[in-house]
Design a protein around this nucleic acid. Structure first.
Lengths: 228, 228
DNA sequence: GGAGATTGTCACACAACCGTCATCATACCG
DNA sequence: CGGTATGATGACGGTTGTGTGACAATCTCC
């Protein structure tokens, strides 16, 4: 997973130097000379991180950062600001504006790469937080959403609960009775065959994406959710 | 800007351990053994974040969380819950109650600190942000004005508060109860169905500009504001 | 004090969802 | 290779949850 990094700086020399250095560190780089070009570049293909110069002609780096953090589509993209001076106020403002980190010029490439990696690690961690994922099938409790490789699936409430239980307790067989207790709750008297029907409905939704194979029938016992 | 963190746990050993670890990470810590002590501590001086154990003697952590989120004075204080088991239902309930995040025991200090910082960063950003924008729909907190691609929308006060909450907390489902707590405030007893009506009114205003799709119904759960 | 806006509630309409059954397909058994 | 047990599937009322329009009470601003 090579991350794409957008370098925004008006000095061609510095831009090129950074591009070379970061490419050497294993990142894919694209460049932009000003805020406007940066925005079109971002619209074209969201980068994994933006390296942003504090001073830019026209719309300043600070303003661009603020704009990116204000828009929901780009808010998640981490930003590292390059500040020229060692001014305390600059640091504070950089973080105020929503930048994830800042580096003061002059800086060593080693330090910059370390910071980039740290920021990427942090944001990657946050993204996958409390979502359960199996082979690209992802269930997020927070948003109450199920996605199969980016495309979101439409589940009914019971289907969601059933899948939630399965994906949280994989690799084990459950009888229809157990499933009724766990997914429907105790003290409900429902036909065991009803489980079959919901299993089928769940499979039907996941089928088009090939995930129906995860729900396996164990004859004369029950069902199992398994990644193999 | 060292943040003050209130640790609520009935086990003195764990409390002390957490206190030491978080102090080491640069936070100022205060402790409380039960919900009652926690509330007096909060009244004495609002902490920047509450670390709350799921199980507490007397008033449980869940109840305390709900109470804090229901009270307008303490609603803004972020809460991270410590859940003992890996039980999925606990996580769901933690979020139901209004907690901002949760950590399952056993956890590493590193992880806990990371989550605390993440939550603090998120909430700090929310406060300083004077305008929020999603796909051209823009809500300006300062001027109390909402615009959809330049054309301004006419919202009633309640509609504005509802949209404000949604746009500041996107991508997460909220039950009608939570929305009542967050948008209407404390100690109000209002029918949950009333939320439906305001959702509809909000959709009606945003509909002509195509933004009604951002407010999504999650059947048998609640509503979600989402850019997808 | 009054016109208009706002708000909470209700009743009804409508759509989604759920549980059940009958029937068909498949696996297992001797 | 039939017969039987078990699961898959499609269809169908009944139920539940949400959308919507109306209305009275309340509030706001002249």
């Amino acid at each position: 997973m090579t991350e794409k990094i957008l370098i925004v700086d008006d000095e061609p020399a510095l831009r090129q130097m950074l591009g070379l250095a970061l490419s050497g560190a294993g990142f894919e780089c694209i460049e932009a000379a000003d805020a406007e070009k940066a925005e079109t570049a971002i619209a074209a293909g969201a980068p994994g991180l933006v390296l942003l110069d504090w001073m830019l002609p026209g719309v300043s780096g600070v303003d661009l950062a603020r704009r990116l953090k204000r828009d929901a589509r780009t808010r998640a993209i981490p930003i590292i600001m390059l500040t020229a001076r060692e001014e305390e106020t600059d640091k504070v403002r950089a973080l105020d504006v929503g930048a994830d980190d800042y580096v003061t010029k002059p800086f060593s490439i080693r330090e910059l790469v370390a910071r980039i990696k740290a920021v990427l690690r942090r944001t990657a961690q946050e993204e996958t937080r409390d979502a359960i994922e199996v082979e690209g099938l992802r269930l997020d409790v927070r948003t109450h959403r199920v996605t199969a490789r980016e495309t979101s699936l439409q589940l009914s409430p019971t289907e969601f609960r059933l899948l939630h239980f399965f994906i949280a307790h994989p690799e084990r067989v459950y009888t229809r009775g157990q499933l009724l207790d766990q997914v429907w709750g105790n003290n409900v008297y429902i036909e065991e065959r009803t489980v079959d029907v919901h299993i089928r409905r769940l499979r039907k939704v996941m089928g088009p994406h090939g995930y129906d194979r995860l729900i396996q029938t164990v004859r004369s016992v029950g069902y199992r959710f398994s990644a193999q």
